Amino acid sequence: MQIAIAEAKAQFAELIRRAEAGEEIELTRYGRPVARLTATPPAANRLLGCMKGQFDLPQDMTEGDEALAALFRESRLLPE
C-alpha cells in the first residue's frame, strides 16, 4: 500500500495497526516512495537460555543456602 505522508499523519494509528498485522505501508512524498512501515519481529527474551550448553554449573554451588537452592530448583537450571 502507498500513502502520502500528509495523509498518513491523519491515519497513523491505523497504519501502525496494519503494519503490525503484516502489511507493508510505503510512505510517499510528491508521489515518490521515501519510507516504509513494516512490522518488527516479535521481541523474544533472548537472554533466557542464551548460554544453554555453553558451560556446566557446579553441583555444589547452592550448598549452604537453602533459599538459593530453592530458586535454582524452581528455575530448572540444575539437573535433578
Rank of each mutant, 00 (worst) to 15 (best):
A21T: 02
G49N: 05
L27T: 06
D65W: 07
R76A: 11
I5G: 05
A21I: 01
L57R: 05
P41N: 11
A8K: 10
M1H: 02
I3P: 12
F55V: 03
N45E: 14
A6D: 15
L15D: 04
P41Q: 14
L27R: 01
F12K: 06
A6S: 14
R46F: 11
A35K: 00
E80D: 13
D60L: 03
P79F: 05
F55W: 03
A69N: 11
R73F: 03
D65S: 10
A39F: 00
M51C: 10
D60G: 03
R29L: 13
P79W: 03
K9I: 04
C50H: 11
P33M: 01
M61R: 15
N45V: 10
L48P: 00
E7K: 15
D60A: 11
Q2C: 02
E20Q: 12
R29C: 08
E14I: 10
R29S: 14
E26W: 03
G49T: 06
A4F: 02
M51D: 12
C50Y: 07
P42D: 09
D65G: 07
M1A: 03
E66P: 15
R32I: 13
S75K: 07
E74D: 12
I5W: 07
L15K: 02
E66G: 08
A13K: 11
K9P: 00
R29H: 12
R17E: 10
I16E: 14
V34M: 12
V34K: 00
G31C: 08
R36C: 01
F72V: 06
L78S: 11
N45F: 11
L57Q: 05
A6P: 04
R18H: 02
S75P: 01
E63V: 13
K9F: 07
A19L: 04
A19C: 04
Q59M: 06
L27G: 07
A69P: 06
I25D: 02
K9H: 08
F55K: 04
T28Q: 10
C50N: 09
A39V: 07
A70Q: 15
M61T: 13
R18E: 05
P42C: 01
R36Y: 03
E74F: 04
D60Y: 08
Q2M: 06
A8T: 12
S75H: 05
L68V: 12
G64F: 05
A39P: 06
G64I: 07
A6I: 09
L15Q: 04
M61G: 13
S75A: 13
L37C: 04
Q2F: 07
E23V: 01
P79S: 13
S75R: 13
E63Q: 15
V34H: 01
A70D: 15
L27I: 13
E80F: 04
A6C: 04
R18G: 04
T62N: 12
G31F: 09
K52Y: 05
